[in-house]
Amino acid sequence: MTREPVHERGRVIGHNITYPPFYVTVRDARGYESLIQAQPGRTVFEPVTRRRGMFDED
């Protein structure tokens, strides 16, 4: 997993998180092993959330 900051006008607005593909090795009844991709690699954008201060109103 990697995190890369995303900038807009000199400010960090979030992070691109890249997840690698996930592979599983399975064995069938005959004893043969197969490598199966259980989850493909993907990139997700996670925005920066605003931190609430002690005196912020709801």
Results as ranks from 00 to 15, higher is better:
Leu35Ile: 08
Thr43Ala: 07
Pro5Met: 06
Arg27Gly: 00
Phe55Gln: 09
Gly53Asp: 09
Val12Thr: 15
Met1Arg: 10
Gly31Ser: 01
Gly41Cys: 04
Val44Glu: 15
Val24Ile: 12
Pro20Lys: 07
Phe45Cys: 15
Phe45Tyr: 15
Val6Trp: 13
Glu33Asp: 03
Arg50Asp: 08
Ile36Asn: 06
Pro20Tyr: 05
Tyr19Pro: 00
Thr2Glu: 15
Val24Asn: 09
Pro47Gly: 02
Glu57Gly: 10
Tyr23Gln: 09
Pro47Glu: 01
Arg51Leu: 12
Thr2Val: 14
Arg52Leu: 04
Asp56Tyr: 10
Ser34Glu: 03
Arg11Phe: 04
Gly53Thr: 03
Phe45His: 12
Asn16Trp: 15
Val12Trp: 09
Pro20Arg: 06
Arg52Asp: 05
Asp58Asn: 07
Gly10Asn: 05
Ile17Thr: 00
Ser34Phe: 08
His15Asp: 07
Arg52Glu: 05
Thr18Ala: 13
Arg52Ser: 06
Thr25Glu: 09
Arg27Ile: 13
Tyr32Met: 12
Arg52Thr: 08
Gly10Glu: 03
Glu33Thr: 11
Asn16Arg: 15
Tyr32Lys: 12
Ala38Cys: 10
Asn16Ser: 13
Met1Glu: 12
Thr18Phe: 00
Leu35His: 00
Thr2Trp: 05
Thr49Ala: 14
Glu8Cys: 02
Ala29Trp: 01
Gly41Val: 01
Asp28Met: 09
Gln39Phe: 00
Val48Cys: 06
Tyr23Ser: 01
Gly31Phe: 03
Tyr23Cys: 02
Glu8Ser: 13
Gly53Glu: 06
Arg3Thr: 09
Arg30Cys: 02
Gln39Val: 05
Phe55Tyr: 12
Arg50Trp: 10
Pro21Ile: 03
Arg9Cys: 12
Glu4Asp: 14
Ile36Phe: 02
Thr18His: 10
Arg51Lys: 15
